[in-house]
């Protein structure tokens, strides 16, 4: 096994708010090897985006970050802003949920691609243009040469996300972070974009983090899955192991809440009641306790820590892990 490309060590992110300190990420440890895909799953507001922004060093100004983010041998938390800027866009790339976050509405697609390429790679204009066309073709844009002269608003949502991916891939990054890359898109386009990311990843031996609230999106595409709740990683396992035998009631509940095609119409969905706790008011016990079907008195008193399960690489944080092997409504 090679040394990990990325190691997140004891990372915590705090944000000052009028209501008090908000702990968006609560001491997370994760690692990822070159060429592998990690899926980060959890409900809205549970800290997925803040964790990825901690890796990218793109946190809001007032945020307080502790811990280490080791990427390719250096600690990003302690890196000079100038070196960081060079790293981002080159070795470290990102694709956001809304492609317009990374696209400039007043510049043509060609200008944006070529600027990124020329900023990070030593290529002259004709070479940068040739490479732009190649990239657009690689992400499945028909007639790429004509697209170069167009503006983002002239493209559909799916096209824009392809272009954002082309820009992210343009400098052959070692790590690509995709934050809900398909949440805003239709199922058919979603499938195309996920296929595209997987194909480019294999071809480039790139590491990838896919962030989503839908376990269905990572099931067939991630090597490993980390489930986040209230700022913490509460379960983590190789994907096969996780789906074969999930230990966390929260993971089970997330899976059960997805409508299934096999289920008859008008069957009530097993929804998780309520919302995650207010992150400015951390709970004493397990953060999931108020919503958990398995909670006991102990769950309200103490915080479960990540513990190893039988399968290698499988960790969970729960006092009463699910014991059964069947019965999950999947």
């Amino acid at each position: 096994m090679s040394a990990p490309l990325l190691t997140i060590e004891d990372v915590a992110v705090e944000l000052p708010t009028p209501r008090g300190n908000l702990r968006a990420v609560d001491h997370v440890d994760l690692s990822l090897e070159a060429g592998r895909t990690l899926g980060i799953v959890g409900e809205s507001g549970c800290g997925k985006t803040m964790l990825s922004r901690a890796v990218l060093q793109l946190l809001p100004k007032k945020a307080k970050l502790t811990g280490r983010v080791m990427f390719d041998g250096q600690d990003l938390v302690r890196l000079e802003p100038e070196s960081l800027r060079r790293l981002r866009g080159r070795d470290l790339a990102v694709v956001f949920q809304d492609p317009m976050t990374s696209l400039n509405p007043v510049l043509t697609i060609g200008t944006q691609l070529m600027e990124t390429i020329q900023e990070h790679l030593e290529l002259d204009a004709p070479a940068a243009k040739a490479r732009s066309i190649e990239l657009l073709a690689a992400v499945g844009i028909p007639a790429p040469e004509q697209r170069l002269a167009q503006y983002p608003h002239q493209c559909s949502g799916g096209m824009r996300q392809r272009i954002a991916i082309a820009i992210a891939l343009s400098c052959e990054p070692k790590l690509l972070i995709a934050d809900e890359p398909t949440t805003a898109l239709d199922v058919t386009i979603q499938a195309q974009i996920l296929d595209l990311l997987a194909r480019e990843q294999r071809r480039r031996h790139m590491a990838m983090i896919i962030i989503t609230h839908d376990l269905g999106v990572v099931a067939g595409r991630a090597d490993e899955v980390a489930v986040m709740y209230a700022g913490r990683v509460v379960e983590r396992a190789p994907t096969q192991a996780l789906f074969k035998r999930m230990h966390m009631p929260y993971t089970e509940a997330l899976l059960a809440a997805i409508p299934k095609l096999e289920t008859a119409p008008h069957t009530p969905l097993p929804a998780i009641s309520g919302r995650p706790p207010d992150p400015t008011r951390p709970l004493k016990g397990c953060s999931f306790a108020p919503r958990c079907n398995y909670a006991t008195g102990r769950c309200h008193e103490a915080k479960p820590v990540l513990t190893s399960a039988e399968m290698p690489g499988h960790l969970y944080a729960c006092f009463h892990p699910i014991r059964m092997t069947e019965g999950i409504e999947a």
């Binding site: 559909s156 799916g158 096209m159 199922v187 058919t188 386009i189 979603q190 499938a191 195309q192 996920l194 296929d195 194909r199 839908d214 376990l215 269905g216 999106v217 099931a219 067939g220 595409r221 994907t239 096969q240 996780l242 789906f243 899976l255 997805i258 095609l261 999947a330």
Partner: peptide, 24 residues
């Protein structure tokens, strides 16, 4: 049929079929 194939299934044993939904 194409729409049905494009649904991401929460099952790691079902590898998504490549580009079932070609084109826009």
């Amino acid at each position: 049929a194409l729409l049905l194939q494009a649904i991401p299934l929460p099952d790691p044993d079902v590898r998504p079929a490549e580009s079932v939904a070609a084109g826009e």
